[in-house]
Amino acid sequence: MKNGRLNARNIAYYGIAGTLAIVLSMLESVLVPYIPGLPPGAKPGLSNVVVMLLAATGQTAGLLFPVLMKSIFVLLTRGMSAFLMSLSGGILSAAAMILMHRAKLKSIGEAGIGIVSACMHNAGQLLVSFFYTGTAALIWYLPVLLLFGAAAGLATGIFTAVLLPHARRLAVLFRKESGSSFTT
């Protein structure tokens, strides 16, 4: 994987990305109680924008940072179960992003990727809850999660698309050192 190698400069960059993800997630938790009709487990996923931008600019190794850092933050604030849910959701979501970018489909943009990765995030969380409760009974909840996941993913996807050109310009600064190659 030549994209986004882990050298000193990149790590600093990714570290900032991770911190940004954490801050956004904190902001989100403050806002969530004020959103009416929000089912448990469904979140706007603001911090996902960071992850999606990294994925869109080809910084695949860097994806590790926001995902892990955010999950560890969750571990410290909300405990082991929430940590595992965040981690599994984050990994599946990031994997989906990587796959979709690799597939290089012209007719799918960040909005579509946002929807898919948000749904994958919810799926990951649901999977962990199966292990914790010892039964798959919660699967009745999937349609609700998919619905909200689609909505949230669409929003974050559009947001990512808007920010993308700016993010790309930032990434250019690291191009020479990281040897990354991506489509502009």
Binding site: L105, K106, S107, I108, G109, E110, A111, G112, I115, L154, G157, I158, A161, V162
Partner: peptide
């Protein structure tokens, strides 16, 4: 920002 594939 929203492409055809996204809508699909």
């Amino acid at each position: 920002y929203v492409k055809r594939g996204d809508l699909v």
